[in-house]
Design a binder for these strands. Structure first.
Length: 575
RNA sequence: CGGGGCGUAGCUCAGUCUGGUAGAGCACUGGUUUUGGGAGCCAGUCGUCGGAGGUUCAAAUCCUCUCGCCCCGACCA
């Protein structure tokens, strides 16, 4: 393809709307353009890479035995009401009506739709297992779309759904997808970290996320320095490394006047103690009933964990009047001692002695508190997030490191949640009916594309892995008006095309500097410079985008050299 | 939804405080010289200053309302 006939609107300057590298580069390299918040057009270059990612996904899903289908993006609202998920997801779904006032939604995911399909088409254990997948546009009314394709209102997802007759089979299906995902991301040139994750609105027993480590990632995670344990912060467990006994451990509680010291910072400053010595008491309304939640002063409540621990349908922090009523003190002075509420203490507080808590009276705190001796803890639960420096919950001696990641894939063990509600039943050999056991598996295809860029760039631009680069090779003629240069360029381009290689030919009548800058920005892995000076010596230059290595090769050997270099780059990724 | 920032040429931005004929660089068009890392010169095109209303002799600038975009948070698969 001749550059002069392509649409590649590169930007010299960083657009104001973009903050993170991958978003800036996608705009600058002319891959995408914004229509509105969270809605993007793929320009030719971006679309080419997108299709290459899709192709890898498709090849690996097919290889794993999954069957490609295509489901509608428009769904009757009713089917979502049948599983009870309309209430869970109604804020994230776009809701519309047809001309007959029938209620429809734009699909944010497809568990209901595929299960409905299977309920009609699969009846016997002989038809199982089956794994159906699609690559399709999803719609989610995000509260805050962000960072270009990273979190968009409309995006392309590969979603797969497995149905098995028994739990062993379901486990095998899950493992097959897990392995397929590893291959997919590897082939895209991504380094991913697989972490244990929360299942959220999807439900089910357990799940793993495929994370691309990047500072711009929206998810926090921890990984153990000495064993394979890694988990999303929403779920991660950890062991406390710091002390749980403090000065005054053997003494009895004592009220100390702390006028106007409410926050952890103020109180710990007042006592000249570390925040960890404080026990923070928060009052939550769990299904409209007040409960006390205790966490170490230097920790925050992880509401996802709290929700799970209490199995509450609704969970909100109590308002100030409620706090005053149930603790008998203004906000800032609540404590567990003498409190007549259910008390849920984070397990990191186990063994806390000599601690400082609110005294449940205005302007006062208690010191020398021994939590288990002095307060009636209803239950110890895991309700705080792990953080870097904590101990590993698995191997015991490792230390957790905190990282940020972009979630590009998520695999879930769903069990029978959907198959029961939508009657996706099969008959076993004895003719008895059972709900199929399900798994679901998602890859954010458009997000993956951006994640690759977030992981592969330098100060000059994108550095595409050859497997998903818009073109494998860029031929750059230094001076388009120099007849010999143009002739050699065209010959090399034609020979590469004949060998089945994607080639971009920068034939523009621009100054060399402009073309070099654009080439680096676009990040095509292999660049061939064809110029008067090197032709005089009978050679052309092959410049590697990633390593910046420059090789000169005789014109006659150029095409073969390029082809072998392409093979090397592919082997590097797939090998 | 709460907090913060921003909307002026295709892009990046100045001008707004202190009201007085709308600017720069890049891009674009034509010409010319130049051709190995974002060229020089000459000439030119491009604006409902996000929108509506108000104050004023006069509004990009002051006031009110509104729309959009970005960031942080809440929330979220």
């Amino acid at each position: 393809m001749h550059w002069s006939k392509q649409l590649i609107p590169t930007l010299r300057e960083v657009p104001q709307e973009a903050e993170i590298p991958s978003h800036q580069l996608m705009l600058r390299a002319g891959l995408i353009r914004k229509l509105s918040a969270g809605l993007y057009t793929f320009l030719p270059l971006g679309f080419r890479s997108l299709k290459k990612v899709e192709r890898i996904v498709r090849e690996e899903m097919d290889r794993a035995g999954a069957l490609e289908i295509l489901m509608p993006a428009l769904h009757p609202q009713e089917i979502w009401e049948n599983t009870g998920r309309f209430d869970v997801l109604k804020d994230v779904m776009f809701k519309i009506k047809d001309r007959q006032e029938r209620k429809l939604v734009l699909g944010p995911t497809h568990e209901e739709i595929v299960t409905d399909l299977v309920s009609h088409e699969i009846n016997s254990y002989r038809q199982l297992p089956v794994n159906l997948y699609q690559i399709q546009t999803k719609f989610r009314d995000e509260i805050r779309p962000r960072f270009g394709l990273m979190r968009a209102k409309e995006f392309i997802m590969k979603d797969a759904y497995s149905f098995d007759a028994d739990w062993d089979g379901a486990e095998k299906s899950y493992q097959a997808m897990y392995e397929a995902y590893k291959r997919i991301f590897k082939r895209c040139g991504l380094r991913t970290k697989i972490v244990e994750a929360d299942t959220g609105a999807m439900g089910g027993s357990s799940s793993h996320e495929f994370m691309v480590l990047a500072d711009a990632g929206e998810d926090g995670l921890v990984e153990c320095g000495s064993c394979p344990y890694a988990a999303n912060l929403e779920r991660a467990e950890s062991v406390l490394r710091s002390a749980v006994t403090f000065d005054g451990a053997e003494k009895m509680p004592e009220v100390v006047a702390t006028p106007n010291r409410r926050t952890v910072q103020e109180v710990s400053n007042f006592f000249k103690s570390s925040p960890a010595r404080l026990i923070k008491t928060l009052i939550y309304m769990a299904d409209d009933k007040p409960v006390a939640v205790l966490v170490p002063g230097d920790r925050e409540v992880n509401e996802i964990k709290l929700n799970r621990a209490l199995s509450a349908k609704s969970l909100v922090l109590a308002d100030n009047p409620t706090i005053a009523r149930v603790t008998g003190a203004p906000v800032g002075f609540a404590g567990p001692v003498g409190l007549s509420l259910p008390i849920y203490a984070d397990h990191k507080l186990k063994g806390y002695q000599g601690a400082i808590t609110g005294a449940n009276q205005a302007d006062a705190h208690l010191v020398n508190v021994d939590l288990e001796r002095d307060a009636k803890v209803t239950q110890f639960v895991d309700v705080t997030s792990a953080k870097g420096g904590d101990g590993c919950p698995r191997c015991g001696n490792g230390t957790l490191n905190e990282k940020r990641g972009i979630e590009v894939g998520h695999v879930f063990k769903l069990g029978t949640k959907y198959s029961e509600k939508l009657s996706a039943l099969y008959k076993d050999a004895e003719g008895k009916e059972h709900p199929a056991i399900m798994g679901c598996y998602g890859i954010g295809v458009t997000r993956t594309l951006q994640a690759v860029i977030e992981q592969c760039f330098d100060t000059d631009g994108i550095i595409w892995p050859i497997t998903i680069a818009p073109y494998s090779v860029e031929v750059l003629v230094i001076n388009a008006q120099h007849a010999e240069s143009a002739k050699v360029s065209v010959e090399i381009v034609a020979a590469l095309k004949a060998a089945g290689i994607d080639v971009l030919y920068d034939d523009r009548d621009e100054r060399p500097g402009v073309k070099f800058k654009d080439a680096d920005l676009l990040g095509i892995p292999i660049r061939v410079n064809v110029g008067e000076k090197s032709l005089a010596k009978g050679v052309v230059e092959i410049k590697m985008r990633k390593t910046k290595e420059l090789r000169t090769v005789p014109v006659a050997e150029a095409v073969n050299k390029i082809l072998s270099t392409i093979r090397e780059l592919n082997d590097e990724i797939n090998g």
